[in-house]
Structures are given as structure tokens and as C-alpha cells.
Design a protein around this nucleic acid. Structure first.
Lengths: 336, 336
DNA sequence: TCTGTCATGCAAAACGATTTGGATACGTGA
DNA sequence: TCACGTATCCAAATCGTTTTGCATGACAGA
């Protein structure tokens, strides 16, 4: 009849014929315990199904063994992969992961969500791609939680950073479009203006064009939203201009999928008449047809790296802020 | 310089000139406090940025204000929607949600993950669609956590249940295929045999055929896995039979997307030469072309219902086990 | 034999909240 | 004046761990 969730450390101590101190020491290994005693204790733990109460432990140790991930949209597949990556390495270390959504729509939800999280005394927080205010970052840092920011620059605030080589990735993609495929008039559809990682991706597009000696067509860059709907609107705008593009480079895959929609509606052959490219390589990118040529943004690996940074900090690493940048690779499918 | 995360209830009491008891009472409202005192305390809380320590509170109250969701695959969009639904209503109640993945591959991970969760003393657990053993369910129930199971029957174990009307949904879909669209030889591609909700969906398919006076073609039902790859394999098997089907009904959308792949490879017009249907209506279902005719499985609403059930229990509802079943609606797109 | 070192194990003091059983003061009715 | 509610507030016990400072026994070196 064990496992009723009610067995306490004193019960284990009684069963093993030792004091609670000794039980604690064999569990934590913080002081030596003779092999014989250790065996008796471990046996009692097993028999009784003892699991330390996390509240009591946390009260004493001031740790919750919990880390959080905050993202703007929990259903976005990129964020899901991120969460999976963090979860995997955190779980292996006995850390629980909670992922929270702080929608960017209807006002700044971020401070409220962050308030909930700091109230929970999380050991660490991974902050997904936001236009986070400096005050938000300081709130986290001030709460005692270690912080890892995603997709921004190290100088922007406290904590460590992991980000992808967005600019380089996009530059490689556009270079491929003009160099190997010979597209001539290349448009750009961005997400919300000013929201990362839109800026860096646009920068990569601009650089590649400049390197190739092409003029950067200012009239062929539009900013909408990082959604399929945004892609539809953006593509429509671009195709309705006097001199429409023969290729559109999109700031993410969802936008590209929206662009594919309008191409199909208008009977435009892709990639013959119009090339379309995405960014991120979410699952859906290879499900649509034509399959998207895009850049793989290693979301899961980003999550893993972030979790590893966090764990290093929790293990006492007090070195200077670190930044890990992951390379991005273009994957050629049929849409361009 | 407040908000340093170190302010305790005694600090608030001192600042307000009252005892800690009184502070606790104005916060919890468990005993009356005069308006003047209340105001002073609330002001102090605000000024100091006091947030109660969850470990200390949890130790005393034996609650963690945390609920968990366990799913086989955290990146599956259906599960993501589920999580979003739970999260939304839990968050509004001040509950934190943790979602855990217990992969069905490489052996039974479920017991291990469940062990981690019961060690955390969660207040409630929502258990996604698994082939969960009775022992697993009893483990949860025995840990003191309230349990909501998804997609199974109420009689199968402890806790409440929320499930979709899978059988009816599939019956409606197949009825549409034979009645309105006139398909004659309809195959079925299932996921892993014996894993919910495969059985119910197959049952719906069978019933619809029987109702229409059709023979149920035993040779046209194959079981693979709930993935795109599974769909590819299943469709190939079906199309290579002596008398191939003119329509394939798939147990979920990913399978259907795989089936679409092989139709495209073989140059089969969909839906002219072969109809393909899915189930769940994940985002990708409307992104592929032809867009999938499928059945919408209201994942987010399922999540909301589950969270509401949990909260009722946490609020003291000790009534008999409850079961909420949500209707499923077929959505007609172009693939059938 | 005496002293000093290890190796062990224990008792008791935190950790920061909630909650119970009184205390205090103030009216009120007899 | 006395007894008795009522409205407020407080002191102290409690939740289940971890961890610090000692106590004990064994053993070695002098």
C-alpha cells in the first residue's frame, strides 16, 4: 500500500533504522555514508516508494528545479520544436519545463506573464523572439532566474543568447536564387516591421542583392505579418505592381505558404513563372506543393543549446555572458 | 529597489504595521479584515512588490497550483492545440501548466514520465491519447492528483473523460463519400493497430459502409502509423492491390498527407482518380493541395473542457466521474 | 594511556507561508 | 456594574525538507 504519496522522509528513516539526516545524505550525496547504511536506506526508499516533497525541498533550497520558456505563440511549429529541444535536455537533468504563451496581440501581455513566472521562482527562463522591453529583461534578471534570450544580440540586455545566423542564411538563399537560378526581379515579404527576426533576414536579402551588383528594389519589399494570411496579402500587393517580381523571398514559411496560395489562385506556375521561398523549414514546408525551398532554422538545436546554457549557469558558472550562434542551411526543394 | 524577489510576508506586515496573520488574511480573504487595514496592507504589497513564495505556500497548503498534460508527441499539432486550450483556462485560474512528452517509441516511457510528475505533486493531470495501462492510471490517481483522460471511455479507469465523437465523425465523412460523391471502393489507412483513436475511427468507417449496404472490404484496410511516412506506406500497399480503391479514408491528416504524396508521385488526379480524406483538421490540412477534406477535431476545445473539469475537481467537486463528448464536423475541401 | 583524526550519525535550527485558538477592545442590554 | 457578543488582530504551531554544529566510536601515532 505504498505510493499513496504520503510517505515522508521520517518514515524512510524509521524503516531503515537511521535518522532523517542520514537519509537526506544518502539521497543528496553531500556527506559520506557507509555502504551498509546506504544500502539499507536505498532499500527503504524503494520499498516505500519515497519521493521527496518538492515544496519542502524548494522551501529549504530556494530552488524549484523548473525552467520556463516564453513564446508569443504556442502553436507555431517553430516554437514547438524549440520547446521539444529544451524539454529533452532539461528532463534529463531532472528539471521540469513549463512553456508559456504571451500573445503579441491585444497589448503587452508579456509583463503579466512574466509576473506570473517570477512569482513561481523559476530557476531559469528562456525568452523566445519578442520585441521584449529592457524593463522586461531586468524584471527576469532581478527575480533571480537565469536568463537566456533567443534571436537577439548579446549587448541588448542581461543573460546569455542563442541565435541563428539569420543574415547569412538569407544571404545564401538569395545568392542561390540569383546565381544558380537566374531570377532577376526578386521581391521580399516581411512580417511585422521591427519584430525579430525580420530585420536580420531582410538585411541578408539586401546584402546578397548588393553583392550581386543588383539594385535593391525598394518598391518590392512589403511588411505584413508572420502568418499565412500575411503572405497572401503581401504576395497580392507585390503581384499587382506595375512590374511584378519573378521571385518572392518570404521572411518565414507561413508567409511563403500564403504566397503559394495566391500563385495557385492566379494560375501562376511555381517556380516557372514565380519562385517562392520560405524560412525556418517547418514541417508544413515539405507538405505543400510545390515543396518549399527554404532555410532550415534548427529550432530543436536552438532549444537544446539554450537549455544547456541555463544548466551551466545553474551549476554555478558565473562567467561572462555567452552567445552561441547556429548556422543556417538552405534546403532546395521545388518552389524555387 | 523592490522586486528583488526577496521580500517576505513579514516585510509586508512590518511596512503595513500589522501581523503576518493579517497580511495572509487580506490576501486569502479567509477572515474578515477592516477596510482600513486592508487598504494599508494592499498598499504595502504593491509598494514592495510582494509575491508569496510558492514553495512555502505549497508546503503548508499541500497544493502546487500546477497541472500537467502528458502527450506522446509534443510537436504534433493536435497536441499543441490541446495544450493551448488547457493553458488558456488554467492560466486564467492562476494555475501553471506543464506539458510533458512521453514518446511511444523505444519502450514504455510513460511510467517514468508519470513518476517524475507525481514526484512533483501536481494538482491535476490531463492524460492525452495513449494506450495507457491501468497501472499507470492508478499511479496517477494514487498520487492525489485529479485525473482527466482524453479519448477513451469512462469505464476504463479512474478520473473524468473528455472525448470527441470519433465514430460519428468518421461515419459522417464516409456517408458523404458514398452518398454524395459516389465513390465505390473505399479503403482505410489506420495508424498503429490498437492505439486510440484508431479503433473508433475504423468503427465509424465500417458502420457507414454497412449502413449503405456495402460490403466492408477487409482487404482494403491497412494499419501503419499515425505519420506522413505511415500514410505513404499504406497508400502504396492499397494502390498495389489487384483491385485498387477509388478513395482512401485515413485515420488522421498526417496519414492523408502521405497518401497525397504517393498520388502525386504516381500522377493520380485527386480527387478525380483517387479521393483522399484525413481526420483532425490540423493546420497543414488546408495548406496542402489539393486541400484535405477532413473532420475537424476541436483540439483546443477539448483542452478547455479538460481544464474546466480539472478545476471543478480542485474546487471540491466530488461527484461521480463525468464524461464530456464533443461533436465532430466534416469539412469539405477539394481532396474528396 | 593519551591525544588527535577520520568516519559516521544525530538533534535542532532554519526555510516562508497558512491557520487555529485566543486576546483585546468596544458596544449593548439587563 | 456585569456579562456577553462582535469585530479585529496576534502568537504560535505546523507543513517536510536540508544543513550545520556536535557527539560518538574506532583507530593510529606518540
Amino acid at each position: 500500500m505504498h505510493g499513496s504519496g504520503r510517505v515522508k522522509i521520517v518514515d524512510v528513516a524509521a524503516a531503515a533504522g537511521v535518522s532523517v539526516t542520514t537519509v537526506s545524505h544518502v539521497i543528496s550525496g553531500r556527506r559520506p555514508v557507509s555502504a551498509a547504511t546506504r544500502a539499507r536506506v536505498e532499500d527503504a526508499v524503494r520499498r516505500l516508494g519515497y519521493q521527496a516533497d518538492p515544496s519542502a525541498r524548494g522551501l529549504r533550497t530556494q530552488r524549484t528545479d523548473t525552467v520556463g520558456l516564453v513564446v508569443p505563440d504556442i502553436t507555431n511549429p517553430f516554437n514547438t520544436e524549440l520547446a521539444a529541444g529544451i524539454q529533452a535536455v532539461a528532463y534529463a537533468r531532472g528539471l521540469l519545463t513549463v512553456v508559456c504563451e504571451a500573445p503579441m496581440t491585444d497589448g503587452p501581455q508579456l509583463p503579466a506573464v512574466l509576473g506570473q513566472l517570477t512569482a513561481r521562482r523559476l530557476d531559469g527562463i528562456v525568452l523566445g523572439r519578442f520585441g521584449a522591453q529592457r524593463a522586461d529583461l531586468d524584471l527576469i534578471a532581478g527575480s533571480g532566474a537565469r536568463l537566456v534570450r533567443l534571436g537577439t544580440r548579446i549587448a541588448d540586455g542581461p543573460g546569455d543568447v542563442v541565435r541563428g545566423a539569420e543574415t547569412e542564411g538569407m544571404r545564401g538563399l538569395v545568392r542561390y536564387l540569383v546565381g544558380e537560378r537566374g531570377y532577376r526581379r526578386i521581391g521580399f515579404i516581411g512580417g511585422e516591421a521591427g519584430v525579430e527576426p525580420g530585420g536580420e533576414r531582410y538585411e541578408g536579402y539586401r546584402q546578397a542583392l548588393a553583392e550581386a551588383g543588383r539594385a535593391v528594389p525598394e518598391d518590392l519589399a512589403v511588411w505584413t505579418g508572420f502568418t499565412r494570411e500575411g503572405g497572401r496579402a503581401g504576395a497580392a500587393r507585390l503581384l499587382d505592381t506595375a512590374e511584378p517580381p519573378d521571385a518572392v523571398v518570404c521572411a518565414n514559411d507561413l508567409i511563403a505558404i500564403g504566397a503559394l496560395d495566391v500563385a495557385r489562385e492566379r494560375g501562376l506556375d511555381v517556380p516557372g513563372r514565380l519562385a517562392v521561398t520560405g524560412y525556418d523549414d517547418i514541417d508544413a514546408a515539405s507538405m505543400v506543393s510545390p515543396a518549399l525551398t527554404t532555410v532550415v532554422n534548427p529550432a530543436r538545436e536552438i532549444g537544446r543549446s539554450a537549455a544547456r546554457l541555463l544548466i551551466d549557469r545553474l551549476d554555478g558558472d558565473e562567467g561572462p555572458a555567452r552567445e552561441v550562434v547556429l548556422t543556417h542551411q538552405v534546403v532546395r526543394r521545388t518552389s524555387a
